[in-house]
Design a protein around this nucleic acid. Structure first.
Lengths: 243, 243
DNA sequence: GAGTGGTCTAGACCACAAT
DNA sequence: TTGTGGTCTAGACCACTCC
């Protein structure tokens, strides 16, 4: 590491180290859940002090890109290795408990992306998406009807990975493709159930539903999934914490 | 600062410093927006190294309790001094722009708290709440009907501070009472408009509305406000970012 | 006991803001 | 020029995990 000072757009050393480390994860050098080299080894490799590496890793830990454990080491983030399989799932029941829904796939298709998918995923018509529609139950009651779309350029052959594996899509993306989803941006609206919703959810047409549109972003910052769910919020709510 | 090592429930020095500093803000030693002493002065006062103070302040900055500005100093957080007056307002229009609504007060009352208010604010019947109902407009269209309740034990005389000041309640709480709201926990549901909602919002009964229940927490961790809004999401949505 | 991350310290220098 | 926070370094020691 040279070039420690540069007045134009000053870029600290630790930030450069951080970017290099992130790049290596994105490139697949270290898979989700993998153990990174120790601080001192990384410091030696890049010829900086241990404190500088520490700042880079602490930064990454605060963004949940890695997990640090005293006495063990620093690990690439991963839903698999952590105990948070439903990290992005914000629906709680009225006792403030996160129930895990039972999922039933309705259908799936490889298709040219529609306008919404193109915009959300930042792709053109030339890249197909794999679109899955599914119904989810709480306590044998249908509660969520929705679909998600995955880009096939990043996930070739995704359409063949059917079955149980698709129950938790993020674990699948990690295990099969080494892609780590680190952030989700959601837009929420109240909508009236249409005939399609009402039929699957056992409601009257016009019943209020909570619509959740989600764009999931990988560690590299790329949008990888576009999802739309419509949820019955009679006995559940969406939890949002603002700080 | 003595007692630097203690095996049972090890509590690092910087965490102790952090707690002491927070307590001084909560106690009103430093008002919202105030300039804190420099790192070196704090370090000298508590007889620790500057690095330890730095860690405490960095921690506080990451929780948005203080704002650090190179060359100027460290400031107690405050919506007033910052440029984020609608920090907790998550409704955007469909162009992803945060419009500031026009607010019209409907009524206000000092009252014994109902069950929901008691639970949300963690108070008993003995502490009255000041309850304000209001209607908010986007582009002259009524869009949000709701009410908030403030505990009168923390905000004595709040009922006399009517008018413009109540448009932004959090700035009022900072300026008049020195209370800094640092966190909000919101529960969202889709509900059907009742006659009351429909009348104010110009909708049919049964129209879908996004209900937002909010509990606001002060820097000391006390719940200070309980709010319930019902929002028309025809041209707006609620933005939630999950990391 | 060896290795890891976590804490604490001390000092040098840089970038930024105000004077 | 002075004072602030920001970066970088080097070293000592502590707490945790595993062998």
């Amino acid at each position: 590491m040279e070039d420690k000072t540069q007045t134009l757009g000053f870029h600290p050393l630790y930030a450069q180290i951080k970017e290099l480390l992130i790049q290596r994860v994105v490139d697949g050098d270290w898979r989700p859940g993998a153990l990174l080299p120790s601080e001192s080894k990384i410091a030696a490799e890049y010829e900086v002090s241990q404190g500088t590496v520490r700042k880079a890793l602490d930064d990454m830990a605060s963004e949940k890109l890695v997990v640090r454990r005293q006495g063990k080491g620093t690990f690439v983030s991963g839903r698999t290795s952590q105990h948070v399989p439903f990290h992005f799932f914000r629906l709680l029941n009225d006792d403030n408990v996160r129930e895990v829904p039972v999922t039933k796939m309705i259908n799936s298709v490889l298709a040219e992306p529609n306008a919404a998918e193109q915009e959300a995923l930042g792709i053109g018509k030339d890249i197909e998406v794999y679109r899955v529609e599914r119904l989810r139950y709480f306590d044998d009651e249908p509660a969520i009807i929705g679909k998600y779309s995955l880009r096939t350029d990043m996930f070739p052959g995704i359409e063949d990975l059917v079955g149980d594996k698709l129950a938790n899509i993020y674990i699948l993306l990690e295990q099969e493709f080494g892609i780590i989803v680190v952030k989700a941006v959601e837009k929420l609206r109240a909508v009236a159930a249409d005939e399609h919703d009402a039929g699957f959810l056992g409601l009257e047409v016009g019943a209020p539903l909570l619509e959740i549109e989600r764009i999931s972003l990988s560690m590299g910052g790329k949008p990888v999934e576009f999802r739309t769910d419509r949820c019955v919020t009679r006995h559940h709510h969406y939890l949002s914490e603002i700080t």
